[in-house]
Design a protein around this nucleic acid. Structure first.
Length: 578
RNA sequence: GCGCCCUUAGCUCAGUCGGAUAGAGCAGCCGCCUUCUAAGCGGCAGGUCACUGGUUCGAAUCCAGUAGGGCGCGCCA
């Protein structure tokens, strides 16, 4: 239950009892910044005063009378320019803790997505080599965002667009052919400029040599190019999937660019746009200022992106007659729309920022305004070690690939840290800090809170082997023993989780979950530390079984919410630190 | 030159749909710690929300402009 959504509805109902027929869409109910202002605040009187023909304070007083009738509301006051502050009964909070315990790690699930379908495309790295660290952030952001949207009820498709149709896969095929010749015993020397030099192609070369023998060794390129291309792409894609699996990322749909081209879907998409008069042959103005050296005016096939908010019209065809990447991407996004997705999210590297407007223009055009595309740009990750920039060098034996990073610190650490900043802000990833067991390390801090709760629960089993730990349903009244302000504050924080999930999902911002989990951990550790000084605040009191049960319920609630949050991140909550 | 993103405490960053006196961690300063439930704890101080103007009952948040930083800018993806 999102209690703020619930009270917003209560406020709206009260408004309509006083002045029927008002537009209440701007009414909000939210936690007041200041704790002394109560538990729930609403702006209703301020946003409705004009329409109601009343002064904000007068409307607020009238609403206050209505709201005081609610059984969970113990006090209502009008403050400031017309805020209405409500304070909630203790029993209300105990009921929320019961909600947490009942739902466990599913707490925070909601149906605000109402089975709407959303398509999220992420990673989509070129299938020409292993994943490197730059890919990791987009992978994690996309994956966590997908889980977040699923948690609020969306029907989510996690997709990877395989760029297997451009010139770079021909380069890959030639590189593979070279390694194939090498595997057949030829001395190949330096890898020529323009081919992929990576060692990772050697196993593929050996495999091709084993399967095809010398059949393609001295043959003309036309004989083997397509074959080697398909073989190499398949091998690279398998490697990428393996790298992603190591990071815990799993897509459920892979769409091949070549597949779209060969099925005629690019032509079909462009015919569709042509039919709407959105394609023409024309000559673009040269870009002002930074003029490319070889710029010359030439006629091109253009999409009228400017009709949909882009700055210039965009080319669809290269001079050799093949489609540009943009053209096939239009076909892919039309395909998404035709498959029933009117909500699309693409996660790209920040260096593709200049591409956002044209893709949104294209989605708008192919869906005739019925679909929306949100693009999340994953900013650069600065790898640090001990606060100093970490130079990646193969010779020095320092790693360069995603796989190496995951091996160095573990997938859970990579995933969590990648989500500790908003996606469009630069992120410092410090290899030392990532493994440090200190307050500075957010992964440790949150995991430690979860583990500490389990430690206490294990301890409790020693004391009372038959105690219903974390399950006060047999005697809900024990929760009333939770009276310390820090305990109540922690319950309030846990009860705010559904609202946090909903707002993070709506904003497409999974990083908010990381900050929230940090808050929960801080509140829990604070409570723990209070017990160091004040013995009566310790979670387990041998002489007070009932109070201990109540506190165990609270700890169980903490573990449930942390597990719920880490579940969105794809991070395993640990029960022991080791 | 144009477009997009960014600018909040000494540092790294939060800040929800525009809401009340802008928050946290680190660093700094001052205390506490023969401790246990598990990696220390508590407190203090720290601000022209880059700047200017506008919209609003109300702006860190929205709009316009200025400065600084990043990314991108027709047949790469």
């Amino acid at each position: 239950m999102n209690l703020f959504r619930y009270f917003r509805d209560e406020v709206v109902a009260a408004v309509l009892r006083i002045t029927p027929g008002l537009d209440t869409s701007k009414v909000t109910a939210e936690p007041p910044r200041e704790e002394s202002h109560g538990d729930v605040a609403t702006n209703a009187a301020m946003v409705l005063s004009k329409a109601a023909g009343m002064k904000p304070r007068d409307l607020a007083e009238a609403l206050a009378v209505e709201l005081r009738k609610h059984p969970a509301v113990t006090a209502v006051e009008v403050a400031g320019p017309g805020f209405i502050n409500m304070r909630l009964a203790g029993d209300f909070w105990y009921d929320r803790l019961q909600d947490v315990l009942k739902e466990g790690a599913r707490y925070g699930d909601s149906d605000t997505g109402k089975s709407h379908r959303v398509n999220i495309e992420y990673v989509s790295a070129n299938p020409t080599g292993p994943m490197h660290i730059g890919h990791a952030r987009g992978a994690v952001v996309g994956d966590a965002l997908a889980s977040l949207l699923a948690k609020v009820g969306y029907d989510v498709s996690r997709e990877y667009y395989v760029n297997d149709a451009g010139a770079q896969v021909d380069v890959l095929a030639r590189s593979a052919h070279l390694r194939y010749r090498e595997a057949l015993g030829e001395t190949i020397g330096e890898i020529p400029e323009g081919l992929y030099p990576g060692e990772y192609l050697k196993p593929l070369g050996a495999d091709l040599a084993k399967r095809f023998g010398a059949a393609h060794k001295d043959a003309p390129e036309t004989q083997w190019l397509a074959l080697f291309r398909d073989e190499a792409v398949a091998a690279m894609l398998a490697m990428i999937k393996d790298d992603l699996a190591g990071l815990g990322v799993c897509h459920n749909v892979f769409v091949s660019e070549r597949g779209l081209v060969e099925a005629g879907k690019v032509e079909a998409a462009l015919d569709f746009l042509d039919g709407k008069g959105l394609i023409y042959e024309g000559v673009l103005e040269p870009p002002k200022g930074m003029l490319p050296d070889d710029w010359e005016a030439r006629p091109q096939t253009l999409f009228k992106a400017t009709q949909f908010g882009d700055d210039v019209d965009r080319p669809l065809k290269k001079s050799d007659g093949t489609w540009t990447y943009f053209a096939s991407d239009i076909a892919y996004h039309l395909d998404k729309f035709r498959r029933g997705f009117d909500a699309m999210i693409d996660v790209w590297g920040a260096d593709h920022g200049g591409y956002v407007k044209r893709m949104q223009a294209a989605v708008s055009a192919v869906s005739e305004g019925k679909a929306a595309l949100d693009v999340k740009l994953a900013q650069m990750v600065n790898l640090l070690k001990g606060g100093q920039p970490y130079k990646m060098s193969k010779r020095a034996g320092t790693f360069v690939t995603l796989r190496d990073l995951v091996e160095a610190v573990g997938k859970d650490v990579v995933r969590f840290i990648m989500l500790t900043r908003k996606n469009d802000a630069h992120l410092d990833f410090d290899l030392d800090k990532a493994l440090e067991q200190s307050r500075d390390n957010p992964v440790f801090y949150v995991q430690y809170a979860h583990a500490r709760c389990h430690s206490v629960m294990r301890h409790a089993i020693d004391l009372w082997p038959d105690a219903p730990i974390g399950d006060p349903s047999g005697n809900p009244a024990v929760l009333k023993r939770l009276t310390d302000p820090a305990e109540i504050a922690l319950i309030r924080l846990l009860a705010g989780w559904p609202r946090l999930v909903e707002s993070a999902a709506e904003a497409h911002e999974p990083h908010r979950v990381a900050f929230y989990l940090n808050d929960v951990a801080a509140a829990f550790h604070g409570l723990w530390n209070k017990g160091k000084d004040e013995v009566r605040l310790r979670f387990l009191l041998e002489d007070d079984y009932e109070l201990s049960l109540a506190r165990l319920a609270l700890l169980k609630g903490v573990t449930a919410v942390i597990a719920s949050g880490l579940g969105i991140f794809g991070v395993e909550p640990v029960e022991e630190m080791r």
